[in-house]
Design a binder for these strands. Structure first.
Lengths: 223, 223
DNA sequence: TTTTTATTTGACTATTTGGTCAATTCTGTC
DNA sequence: GACAGAATTGACCAAATAGTCAAATAAAAA
């Protein structure tokens, strides 16, 4: 059995640094989820992490620094999850369905990450928001677009692909964000999953109509 | 011709107070849109409104007070717009389509209100967010549910209605919020409108499948 | 006009916060 | 063990902020 890649090479000090850093990131994740990106203070984070205040500034430039890192982490994981589950799929409907499913699974047991993701999206609207958040979000969109493009035989215009990516990802986060306050304790994931088909069917139809009509394989069932 | 209801009865002082209040609300709307609900300071608001700082506290309890009022205003207007356009509709598909259309029209020329709406939704997730925001959002959802319920002949369970309300409203805000950063200058409204049909078709199918199968008019086509 | 009441003001206070840094502790090396 | 460098600490400072209030101003009433 092969050993884990780098653990043995790390010195104790490196492990300690890494642990401190993780404690800070985890604490920040909690605090940001409770109070919001802006309202949470650095002291909140260091207290939650049980480290001195100066330690924060040893590891991160400032609040923006840790926010950017958290966003990159979450979106990076999400992108990886999407890729790993969708890379093999060749059917459009299945791909759309799986993409939405990945989102549901991903955020299912990770409420904090969803709040982070949602706050990040909200921050993108602000004139004076946090810089450095935009890039990972665009990469995330582009991943979705790339996978869609690979499955659709005829090259759709970039703008159409982006529409579909926005629709699919926006649907999940928009629905999720509302459902969570609207359903008290009920299992939101199952509820969302049952609606998944509605959007997938609609999107698949939309896409097939966007294809050149003479070659469209499935879909158009009007009149 | 009947006179306007209350204008003539207002004293000059009342008008002045009202004007100051409006200046503050409008300034707050701008500042919140630029910096976010938390990052904006009271001084930002009073300076933008060009009034003394104390004036703010004469009119509002604190930041939460003005935020609650802004949210109530925006959502109240949105609910009114939905009701006025949808009250007469008796066809499900048309109702769904119109509801989404109302959202698009409503937020079309009102970027600030959309950001407010989106931030409000985000704040609902926080443990230590602003109290008093939840109520208007739930009323908004209930309006959508009531209209849906009136159009569907068979009484759907409350939870199903809520799912559909979450899906429709979540779709719009989720899509909008992403599209706006993803498309540079392009007309997002038209783009969203073109996708409207996809969700409407999907939702209509979803609903018809949720109906008792023996009476369902359209939809069920599984083997 | 004079008096009374409502509204506005911005200087002021008390608190909070981001950020710094000299001192301290911990690690690895010689 | 002794030394050097890395990591940690929390007291400390300067800036920013929420919220107050006595005084000023405007409006209504007498």
């Amino acid at each position: 059995m092969p050993r884990k890649k780098k653990k043995p090479q790390l010195t104790r000090q490196q492990r300690r640094v890494s642990a401190t850093r993780q404690k800070l990131l985890e604490a920040a994740r909690n605090v940001f989820t409770e109070k919001g990106l802006d309202a949470a203070t650095i002291a909140d984070i260091t207290e939650r992490a049980d480290v001195g205040k100066g330690t924060f500034y040893y590891h991160f430039q400032d609040r923006e620094g840790i926010i950017n890192e958290l966003m990159r982490d979450v979106l990076g994981e999400l992108v990886a999850a999407i890729e790993s589950k969708c890379e093999q799929i060749s059917d459009l409907t299945e791909l759309l369905d799986t993409m939405i499913g990945v989102h549901i699974e991903f955020f299912s047991g990770r409420w904090e990450d969803f709040v982070l993701y949602f706050q990040g999206r909200g921050d993108l609207h602000l004139k004076e928001g946090y810089a450095g958040i935009e890039t990972p979000f665009l990469q995330y969109l582009e991943t979705v677009e790339r996978l869609l493009d690979a499955v659709i035989q005829y090259r759709l215009p970039k703008t159409v692909l982006r529409r579909i990516a926005c629709a699919a990802t926006g649907f999940v986060s928009g629905y999720y964000s509302f459902a969570v306050i609207a359903y008290e304790d009920e299992d939101v994931d199952k509820t969302l999953a049952s609606l998944r088909g509605a959007l997938v069917a609609g999107l698949a139809r939309f896409i097939s109509e966007a294809l050149p009509p003479d070659r469209s394989a499935a879909g158009g069932r009007s009149g």
